[in-house]
Design a protein around this nucleic acid. Structure first.
Lengths: 186, 186
DNA sequence: TACTAATTTCTCTTTTTACAGAAATAACGA
DNA sequence: TCGTTATTTCTGTAAAAAGAGAAATTAGTA
């Protein structure tokens, strides 16, 4: 709890939490989850569920479920606090690590099921009589693409984060360096 | 409309539409939108709103709104059909182009607003007295990361799709080629 | 083993989103 | 200009999701 700043004016800290929570909606996680994550990200010490519940004004049960979800994403961790038997939590604070965790979660939730679904379709389509070859071709194109994207993302996500950071900071220079052409860095 | 396959058994085509629609939920677009997209993706000829409405059994108005959203993503296009004044639509069928369009849309909807929000927070935080320097540091770290990700994605999205495809098919070989180290292709 | 504190699960309410049908508007042809 | 057909906007309803509070379970302590 900050002491110096006046309580009436919204602090940048609470602004951050508010914005982050709002953003969560766009990102596919609910507001509570995103807000709790933001709060923990900006906390320099571990917090327990009740502190979170009070600070954000959301129900204790809701906090419990949201914490579970965040632990599932590995964006936060349980930590023991000496002389306190309640569970405390801290957030991953390395932004690159965070990005990797989110990307992994999204791959599991978005790409992997899509691949399973399309594989089933294509399997059936291949046994089907009277199916327009063009339609089968399009299904295959989608299947190939998803397989490529899956393999690529799997590889990228197993790369140490420092290397990924280096790669991203290079930007499209990689293309010219690799001589796979395209326009110059704009 | 296919003639040979029996109508009772679910065709792979309708399976595909069903799965795709379901997936849409995970992806942040609603089921109708995703189903219409799937239908058009598998169509070899342009379809009008009423045909879509009938085939998928969703309300005409719903189709109208969904088509508008898909046009907004540029995943489908209006095309004129000779001798028919109704609007007809075709989908982008190049899967790489599709991926680029979706990535662009997501960047606009997810990254760009996040950047605007965090910039506002950091601006305020810098003028704020009594803010823990560590907290300010974390906000800055997030801001930096988002800026880097934004710049990188902007560059990648302006690269011709054939180059992107080449890059992805290389996978993590790029890292060793660029001598930015890390483990070998696993 | 009983008591207390912490956490999770369950159920109900509120809010949001998706969707259908009706009404209104716009586009085109006679 | 009028009539017809296509399209969009509006409004109400149904379904889904989020969230709060109570109840139940679990874990730790005396």
């Amino acid at each position: 709890m900050t002491e110096i700043t006046d309580k009436n004016k919204a602090s940048s800290r609470s602004q951050f939490i508010l914005y982050w929570g709002d953003m969560g909606g766009q990102w596919g996680v609910n507001r509570s989850v995103a807000q709790i994550h933001a709060l923990l990200y900006l906390s320099t010490n571990p917090l327990n569920a009740e502190q979170i519940s009070e600070e954000l004004g959301i129900a204790r049960s809701n906090v419990s479920n949201s914490l579970k979800e965040l632990v599932g994403w590995k964006l936060i961790q349980r930590v023991p606090v000496a002389g306190d038997r309640r569970e405390h939590f801290v957030a991953e604070t390395d932004v690159w690590e965070m990005a990797l965790l989110i990307a992994r979660g999204r791959k599991e939730r978005e790409i992997d099921p899509a691949i399973r679904a399309i594989d089933m379709c294509v399997t059936q389509a291949e046994t089907e009589t009277g199916l327009d070859p063009e339609v089968l071709g399009r299904m295959h194109a989608m299947q190939d693409f998803l397989a490529t994207a899956d393999k690529w993302s799997g590889q990228m996500l197993s790369v140490p984060k420092s290397n990924l950071a280096a790669l991203m900071k290079m930007g499209n220079k990689v293309l010219t360096l690799l001589k796979i052409g395209g326009r110059q860095a704009k």
